[in-house]
Write a protein that binds this DNA or RNA. Structure first.
Lengths: 143, 143
DNA sequence: GTTGAAAAGTGAACTCG
DNA sequence: CGAGTTCACTTTTCAAC
């Protein structure tokens, strides 16, 4: 992982469908050399994959929330992961400092759908109660 | 935006570098037809672009936090956006319900770097104080 | 890094409801 | 006409050197 690898990653972050020739131009390599870098970065796990950046609103998903999860007793992180992965509206989850056990990022079609999804989170075993913060407007997203 | 468009998007979410022939196979179209769908979805804004999914840890970014921002007086959302975009460690920002004005998602190399970045957020005009939740471990991320 | 065969991308002409 | 297909032609991929 040198400076060129980082610039290769930079190219692919800004355009995940860039051709190897384009990447090579940007970092000063031939197309096959650029491909070998990308292959190596994928094999090493630095690049997990490629994806489209989709506007959730265009798909009719306009509701978004961050939900703190409080558990009963002690729960192992991997157990919590298994539980929370059952709810497709949970797009991200992490354990955090503070009194909550986990913080979830959730997306849904509307507030009604969001409420139903949070209900499902609360119904998971181990989950005692939740505390939600609804997103009013997304200011920006650099990911 | 019909059912086929949604399946095309599904293909590209799981593999942003899928060929048009692969997409076509999955949704029952020829490669040129699949390409026209993708072009149309890009033009309409439903697909904003394509990107690599990078493991932040592989780049040495291991610290992550969610930071609630409390402002002085009333601040227009676009003003807040301009302020917060100045800090590169802020990878996402939104306005939220509750007593905080905004919730930030931040990434940094380590806790020391994270602290310095939060300091810079606090130094932005309009920002009164912040309240941070440090991420202990990411359970999963579906984006 | 260079080369060349195989694969994918891409526009045009054409067909169907 | 909008949306699909096939076909020709260019560009890209990718393995061998």
């Amino acid at each position: 992982m040198d400076i060129i690898d980082q610039r290769v990653i930079g190219c692919l972050l800004s355009d995940g469908r860039a051709t190897y020739a384009q990447i090579g131009d940007q970092v000063g390599l031939s197309a096959p050399a650029a491909k070998r870098r990308v292959d190596r970065l994928r094999a090493s796990g630095a690049i997990r994959g490629f994806t489209a950046v989709v506007d959730p609103a265009a798909l009719g998903w306009t509701a978004e929330a961050y939900v703190e999860v409080y558990c009963r007793g002690t729960v192992a992180p991997h157990e919590l992961r298994q539980s929370l992965e059952q709810v497709p509206e949970v797009v991200g989850a992490c354990t955090v400092t503070g009194s909550a056990d986990a913080l979830l990022h959730m997306l849904a079609k509307d507030n009604r759908h969001l409420e139903a999804a949070i209900e499902r989170v609360r119904d998971e075993p181990n989950v005692d109660h939740t505390e939600s913060v609804i997103v009013l407007s997304r200011l920006f997203d650099r990911r």
